[in-house]
């Protein structure tokens, strides 16, 4: 239990720093920066307390906002995906999600893909909607959501492949 807490604390801090120090400076094709920090929310233990997840997601987003001078955009977007996570889990992993049994590393690839993909899309859409702050730019928002989303998706699976090896 304590090792799990320690693990999550480390991941929380590491992902914020990685996001603001490295990933925000990538600027692929001019303006694409992957938002890998939500990996924390994706990997947060499935059977844990939902209230704790909500608070942690909010703090995670707020931490990134502090660095980016972006108000509460990342906090709001992270909060939204933390809130819908239980439904997405049930949708992607079906009955086997119904409590405790699922471990992320031994789920089918398709289910994993849909779980990660849905949460990334929702998060990025909220984030860019709040950044542009108008529906007039909807097309631009969708475009940025999809391209940045793909970038994040690739990085999420790369990091999963990298860190799950030892188990």
């Amino acid at each position: 239990m304590t090792s799990r807490t320690l693990n999550n604390t480390f991941r929380f801090i590491f992902l914020i720093l990685l996001q603001v120090m490295v990933l925000n400076n990538i600027n692929l094709f001019g303006n694409l920066n992957p938002q890998l920090y939500i990996l924390f929310i994706l990997l947060y233990p499935f059977n844990s307390n939902q209230s704790a997840l909500l608070i942690l997601s909010f703090l995670l987003g707020l931490g990134v906002d502090f660095f980016e001078n972006s108000g509460g955009m990342n906090a709001a977007a992270s909060l939204v995906i933390a809130a819908i996570r239980p439904w997405v889990l049930r949708f992607s992993f079906g009955v086997s999600y119904d409590y405790q049994t699922v471990k992320f590393s031994n789920t089918p690839v398709g289910a994993r893909m849909s779980y990660v993909g849905i949460l990334i899309l929702v998060h990025h859409f909220c984030l860019f909607l709040l950044e542009f702050f108008s529906f007039a730019h909807l097309l631009l928002i969708l475009e940025k959501t999809i391209f940045t989303g793909l970038f994040t998706l690739v990085l999420v699976f790369l990091s999963l492949a990298l860190f799950n090896r030892k188990k």
Binding site: G72, M73, A75
Partner: peptide
């Protein structure tokens, strides 16, 4: 959980509006 979500969401939206 719903209440917690709404309170935190309202706060983060307030910060976002302020930043604009």
């Amino acid at each position: 959980n719903k209440l917690l979500f709404l309170v935190l969401l309202a706060f983060s939206l307030f910060l976002t509006v302020q930043s604009h």
